[in-house]
Amino acid sequence: MSLAWIILGAVGLWALIRLGRQADHTSKVQWRVTATIFAAACWGGAALAALRGAWLFAVALAAAGVWLALSSRQREPRPRNAAAEAMSVAEARRTLGVSETDDRQAIQAAYRRLMARAHPDKGGSQGLAERLNAARDRLLKS
């Protein structure tokens, strides 16, 4: 029975490590957390079933755990420049605080200055960082 506790402990440790790496703030975070918990429960149940000799049930639970773990890791690709194309040039200039006469270097300098404060890793918001990226992309492409 001590082997069962070691296996359950390993599965629990895996779940904690995996949940700790959930730095992605998309709308599917709840699904990923739930799928991780259920995958860990399936693997723990599979280990217990295998120790009791119910091999078919153990394989089914392990397969369900693998499916849950893999399906929760798949990410949908996001369109990178959809916001940049929807933003007008005037709106992009207002967002970055640059005038019509400023060149590429001034636009890049304004972007870096604002992004240093607005980046999500520096305490800013994801939405503001995306808006600054869209404004920079719009001005540098036009």
Rank of each mutant, 00 (worst) to 15 (best):
A110H: 02
D121F: 14
L61C: 12
G127I: 10
G45T: 02
S88H: 08
S72A: 15
S71M: 09
T101D: 12
A49G: 05
A84E: 12
A63K: 05
A90K: 15
L56G: 07
V29I: 14
L48G: 05
A106V: 11
W55C: 04
S71R: 13
V33L: 02
V98L: 00
A35K: 00
Q126C: 09
K28G: 15
A23P: 00
A116V: 10
A41C: 11
A92G: 10
A49E: 13
L56H: 08
W31S: 05
F57E: 06
A109Y: 02
G45W: 03
S71V: 10
M87Q: 04
G45I: 01
D121N: 10
R18H: 12
V98G: 01
A50Q: 15
V29M: 14
A83P: 12
Q105W: 13
A110D: 01
R80K: 07
R75K: 13
L19W: 00
S72V: 14
V66K: 04
L61K: 05
D24M: 04
Q105R: 10
A86E: 06
G53E: 12
V89I: 07
L96C: 07
A60V: 11
E100R: 09
T101Q: 06
R21E: 12
R18I: 08
A90F: 07
W67R: 12
A84M: 07
K122S: 14
P79N: 03
G44M: 00
N81G: 13
W67F: 15
A92T: 13
L114F: 03
E91C: 02
T101M: 11
S99H: 11
V59L: 07
Y111P: 03
R32C: 01
W43F: 08
I37A: 06
R94K: 08
G45A: 11
R73A: 15
A35G: 01
I37Q: 06
G53S: 09
G65D: 00
K122D: 13
A35Q: 02
L48K: 04
A69R: 08
A39M: 07
T95N: 06
P77E: 14
W43S: 05
W67E: 09
V59G: 09
R21K: 15
G124Q: 04
A15M: 06
I107L: 03
A90C: 05
F38P: 07
L16V: 15
T26I: 04
A92F: 13
A60C: 08
T95F: 01
F38D: 02
L56K: 10
L56C: 06
W43H: 12
A49V: 11
C42S: 07
A118W: 05
A23Y: 05
A64V: 06
A110R: 05
G124S: 10
K28F: 15
H119N: 08
R93G: 08
L51D: 10
Q108G: 00
E91A: 09
D24E: 11
A60S: 13
A40I: 08
Q74G: 14
Y111D: 00
A83W: 03
R94P: 04
P79D: 13
Y111S: 01
V66N: 02
T34Y: 14
T101L: 09
R21F: 14
L61Q: 14
T36M: 05
L51E: 11
M87K: 01
R75M: 15
Q30E: 13
G123I: 12
